[in-house]
Computed example of a mutant assay.
Amino acid sequence: MKFEELSIRGAYLIGLQPIQDERGFFARTYCDKEFRENGLNPHFVQCNVSYNVHRGTIRGMHYQSAPYEETKLVRCIRGAIYDVIIDLRADSESYLQWAAVELTSDNRKMLYIPTGVAHGFQTLQDDTEVFYQMGSFYEQAAARGIRWDDPAFNITWPLKCWNMSDKDATYGGFELH
Rank of each mutant, 00 (worst) to 15 (best):
E93N: 14
P114D: 04
G120A: 04
A141C: 01
Y132G: 08
A152M: 11
Q133F: 11
Q122F: 07
E129T: 15
R144M: 14
R147C: 09
N154A: 14
E139Y: 13
T128D: 13
T128P: 08
E139F: 10
D87K: 02
L88I: 07
L88K: 02
F121G: 03
A90H: 11
D87G: 02
E102S: 10
F153Q: 06
T123Q: 05
Y132Q: 06
Q140Y: 08
G120E: 07
D150K: 04
F137K: 11
H119W: 01
A90N: 10
L88D: 11
E102T: 15
I113C: 01
F153A: 05
S94Q: 03
F137Y: 15
S136D: 11
E102R: 15
D106Q: 15
I86G: 00
T115P: 14
S94T: 14
T128M: 12
A152P: 05
R144D: 09
Q97I: 05
Q140F: 09
L103N: 11
E129L: 13
F131G: 03
E93Y: 09
M134K: 07
A142P: 00
S94E: 01
M134P: 01
E129A: 14
Y132A: 06
Q133M: 15
Q140R: 15
N107Q: 13
R144V: 02
F121L: 09
A100C: 09
H119L: 03
A100P: 00
T104V: 12
G145P: 00
A141Q: 13
R144G: 02
A99R: 08
G120Y: 02
A90L: 14
